[in-house]
Design a protein around this nucleic acid. Sequence first.
DNA 1: GAAAACCCTGAAGTGAGTATAGAGTCAAGG
DNA 2: CCTTGACTCTATACTCACTTCAGGGTTTTC
Lengths: 147, 147
Amino acid sequence: MRIGELAQASGTPIETIRFYEREGLLPAAPRTEGNYRIYTPQHAERLGFIRQCRNLDMTLDEVRVLLRFKDQPLAACGEVNSLLDEHIGHVAERIRELRGLEKELRSLRAACLTPHVAADCGILNGIDQAGAHGAAQRKRRHVRGAH
Amino acid sequence: MRIGELAQASGTPIETIRFYEREGLLPAAPRTEGNYRIYTPQHAERLGFIRQCRNLDMTLDEVRVLLRFKDQPLAACGEVNSLLDEHIGHVAERIRELRGLEKELRSLRAACLTPHVAADCGILNGIDQAGAHGAAQRKRRHVRGAH
DNA sequence: GAAAACCCTGAAGTGAGTATAGAGTCAAGG
DNA sequence: CCTTGACTCTATACTCACTTCAGGGTTTTC
């Protein structure tokens, strides 16, 4: 099949498929005479695996590790287990952070129940003190935030 | 004070301060004869506000909106309220998504309790079906994920 | 007067794509 | 045979919120 069909079948934008090839996640597809990529069901399966990993919010580096194991079926899979454990840890931590954040945002929101002049806005004035009561500094994190 | 002192006092890397100036979040600081930026306590306060907003996981565009209100103290602050409401919504949604994700990851992890050969690994084989039971496709989101 | 500590600018890199420009290929219709 | 439209190709730039780097200049301290 050609790239458009693979894109359709896998729910992946065409550009993303080409991007995965450039990144070495998908092998370089063979070409037709007219220089069109042609894919086999094996390519589709591998792409499906990558997309599932991305749905599970793994980085492409994590996916690369898992693909390495897929490609070496005789290797021991202990590293797979610990990769997943670590990833679960990151997700759990990010949930905790976001819960704290939500609490803080809601209490900030409660400071301005009806609109008035900006100078007196409980939100704008509240932000200056926000987190003063012990909220942690933002740190580099592994799981994406709100944006 | 000079930029290093402001960085120290605010817990912000020097390059980030210069970046905020380039982005127009901080006004261009006056310079010494030797072309060093000099800052007043007002600059420090504004930087503190920006950093608090970032701690609350707002985008710089959201911060720009809030700063606009800080700079126009007589404007009505209704937009501030709705910006915050929307932001709270994004955070809450991201928490829901990550909870579902964590559940899925944990059930995947349970498929391989002891390491064996990669070809038989319940995790690697499970990923192919992961989300087949109705998990939503990843969508463009506002709040960062796990990475 | 020299070394260390500080500061400057401009450009490029990060992750994981997305978007665009400009060109080539292919099948169907006239 | 020619054109139209759908499809594909490459290369490049853009996103966001910084971070890092190269290659200098300035100020302070010994």
